[in-house]
Amino acid sequence: MQALIDTIARMAPSGDAHRVFHGRGGLHPGCEDWTLDWYPPVWVATHFGNTSDDDVRALGEALQARWAIIGQGQPLNWVLQRRQPDGPVSRPVTECMAGSVPEPHVVHEGGARYLVQVMKGQNRGLFLDMAEGRRWVRDHARGARVLNLFAYTCAFSVAALHGGATEVINLDMAGGAMSTGQRNHRLNFAGTPRDGRARFLVHDLFHSWGKLTRMGPYDLVIADPPSYQKGSFVALKDYPRLLRRLPDLLVPGGQALICLNAPEIPESVLREQLAREAPTLVVEQRLPNPPAFADASPDRALKVLLARQG
């Protein structure tokens, strides 16, 4: 795990949440099972599979040594989550190894604030690999009506409103995640002119096309579904059903941000599905991922395509 230790020794202070080390990208031999994230004021290390007590001790010592230099006298807070390798999902085991975790835990990114939860489950409330997607939305949302599908905790919606969107419709079938999304909006916009510009629909997308079409059309549609969530969305089966509906939701010249985080599905498959199911949508670019998420295989990394309605 030397590459992880070396990265920790070079870490610089930052006020924004971000990934520090991405062993999962395959660019650090011997560290493929490690990631390290910064959710201020907490370091979150994740290990996939079994790890030794010696490795955990070395990680803690490296964090403590670097924090003594960059931590401005604050106590070190760090969390370790152990997950099973890719395959059947089991409950992760999460421990606070030093310090504490604030509750509520609010982090910053690009001037926005988001609630996160680093002690429960695998999904922490803010997907750090999507930072460039949120940046793009913030930079291009001025004056736009936005539809945010599979909204989760509505981070895209917060970014769009920070960027000047006139309205955002958020849809997700998970009521708990949408409740957090509403709290995220209050954190950012309560008492401001942007308060009230977001709507929150707890619906199953595939039973809501009529309602969404009547509420449209939209200047921007964001589709960031889970790659595999039983009873909700399975990428290989359901993405074609989603793509063929997008043109009807967009204004002429409108844009769609099409996201896929499924390492087993290459970009070419997503492009082929798009060309077949929505030929009026023309791909303009694939957005970059944050540099920390560099991957030996771009096809395994997060794929975010920007398409425009012809």
Rank of each mutant, 00 (worst) to 15 (best):
A3P: 14
T7F: 00
M11W: 12
A12N: 07
G15N: 09
H18I: 00
F21D: 03
R24A: 08
L36G: 01
W38F: 03
V42N: 03
V42A: 05
W43H: 11
N50E: 15
S52E: 08
V56G: 11
E61F: 10
L63E: 03
W67G: 04
P75S: 06
P75R: 06
P75T: 05
L76F: 06
G87H: 11
P88K: 13
M97P: 07
A98G: 03
A98P: 00
G99M: 11
V101S: 03
P102T: 13
G111L: 11
R113F: 08
G121I: 14
G125I: 12
F127W: 06
D129K: 07
M130S: 08
W136D: 00
R142F: 11
F150M: 05
G164E: 11
D172K: 00
G175L: 12
S179Y: 11
A198L: 02
L205S: 01
F206Y: 14
F206C: 08
H207F: 13
S208M: 04
G216M: 05
P226K: 03
G231Q: 06
S232G: 09
P240V: 03
P247V: 06
D248M: 02
G253W: 07
Q255I: 14
L257I: 11
I258F: 04
C259M: 08
N261I: 12
A262E: 13
V269C: 02
Q273T: 03
V282G: 04
P291K: 11
A294Y: 13
D295H: 13
